[in-house]
Design a protein around this nucleic acid. Sequence first.
RNA 1: GGCCACGUGGCGGAGUGGUUACGCACUGGUCUGCAAAACCAGGUACCCCGGUUCAAUUCCGGGCGUGGCCUCCA
Length: 469
Amino acid sequence: MELKLYDTLTREKRVFEPLDRNRVRMYVCGPTVYDFAHIGNARPVIVFDVLFRLLRHLYGAEHVTYVRNITDVDDKINARAAERGVPIRELTEQTYRDFKEDVAALGCLPPTVEPRATEHIEQMKLLIERLVASGNAYVADDHVLFNVPSMPEYGKLSKRSLDEMIAGARVDVAPYKRDPMDFVLWKPSKPGEPAWPSPAGIAVPGRPGWHIECSAMAWKHLGETFDIHGGGIDLVFPHHENEIAQSRCAFHTPLMARTWMHNGFLQVEGEKMAKSAGNFVTIRELLADWPGEVLRLNMLRTHYRQPTDWTLRGLEESSKILDRWYEEIGDVDSAETPDQSFVNSLCDDLNTPDAITRLHQMAHPPVAGKAMAGVSMLGDRTGEDAQRHLKSSAMLIGLLGKRASSKKSEAIEAAKLDVTTIESLVAARSTARKSKNFSESDRIRNEIAEMGVELEDHRDGTTTWKVKS
RNA sequence: GGCCACGUGGCGGAGUGGUUACGCACUGGUCUGCAAAACCAGGUACCCCGGUUCAAUUCCGGGCGUGGCCUCCA
C-alpha cells in the first residue's frame, strides 16, 4: 500500500517515499510552555499522532523517529513567569507536565524525542555562526539577523513574493535591519531575562529568536534534510518559512523537509477561539466533562486539512458513536492486523473521516438477507471477524483500546454508582413485572433512571442495565 | 489593502465529470405490558452567475459569504 500525503510546498498530493525506509523522520512543532494547551493546540498533536501510528504500522515501529519540540524560552514565558512571580523554570516544567498529561489522556503516544529549546542553545549558536559565515546573516546592534533577500527562494512555502510582503508590511521596521523582512536569530537579553553567551562575537549575553530553535532541534535529532515537517497552518508564515531559510542556507540543501504538512484551523461554536471572546477552551477543561477518547474521535471526524468547528453537538455525537462501537465489540480480542480498506483510507492523505466510515461498516455488518439483495460483499466482514477488525482498526488510530466491560466499570465509578443497590432494584422490578404489577415496575425504573442508569429488557426475560452517557 | 483556504441534505462530513457515501437527528414499522435498546424501511443535498462538455456538485472565470496569514497564535 502506498501512502500519499499532501505537501504544502508543492500544493499536491504525492506518494510518500522516505529518504531511508529504516529511519522515517518526522518533526512537528510542539507547544510553547506557558499555559494550559487549548483544543486548537490539540489538533496537530492528535493529527500527527495518527500519522506517527500509521508510519509505524507501514514501516515498523522501530523505524520511525518522531520529534516534537518543547519551546521553553520565549517572551510570553518570561512575561507569564513575571506576572505570577514564579521562576521561569518552574513555570515551564509545570506547564510541560500538564501538557504531557493532557495529550496522554487524548490517547497520543509519546514522540520518540521531545527536545527542549534550552538544551539546544549550542546547536542554535552553531547554526547562527554558519549563517553569518555564509553571508546569510549579519550582526547589528547586538542582534543577529537573517538577511531575507540573501535567499532567492524565500517565500516559496507560503507562496508570497518579497515584493508583496514588503508592500503589505505593517511592521515597524527596526532601524538596525538591512531589509524590512529580515528576522531575528539572536537578540540581547535585558537584565532578568534568560541569557546565554552570544555567538558571532557579540559581547553582551543574549537569547535566541523564535524560529532558530526548530532548525536546531530538527538538525540535531533528524539531520540536515528529513522526511516530514508538520504543524498548524498558521505556522506556514513566518515560522516555517523562516525555518526553511535558516536550515537550507546553513546546510546548502535544496529542501529542509521533503513533505510539509499543515492542519487546518479550528473554531469553537462557529467563532474564532480567543480569550477576549470568552470561548477559550483548554484540553483540561474538556477532559473534565468528556473521556479523552471522545475528544480524539471528534477531532478525527474532520479531515485534518479542513477547517473545523468544535461544538458541543459534535461531542455528543462522537460520544454516542463510541458507546455504540463499544457495545458492538464487547470484550472481543483485537484482530492481528487492521482492516485493509481502513488502512487504505488513512493512506490517502490521512482521510480519517473515510476511515471512520469503514469503522461504521464493520460495526454494522450487513445482514445475510441484505447481502443477497445485491449489496456487494467484496471486503465485507461479518460476525466476530467484523468485531475484531473494528477493534484492531480503531486501535490503529488510538481508539477502542479498552474493553467494554472495563469501560462500564469506569463509567460506574465516574457516576459514583452502587452496583449492589442497582441490582437489587432491578431484581425487585423483575418480581413486580412477573406479577404484572406494572405501576411498581415503572416506578422502580424511574427511580433507577434518576440515578443515571438505563434498563434494557430482553426477550428471554432478563434485564440488563447501563450507565447513561 | 495583499496573499491563501473553505462554502455539500436539519446537523456533522467524505467523495466524484454521468451510479445510494457514511454518521447523528427525524419519520414509519417490527419487537415490548409500556419503554429503552436492537433491527427494517423512508427523505436524491452539493452558495450564486456565466463558460467548457453529450453530461458539472465535481473543470475554468467572475461574484457573494466565512475563515486564516501578513502583528514571535496550532
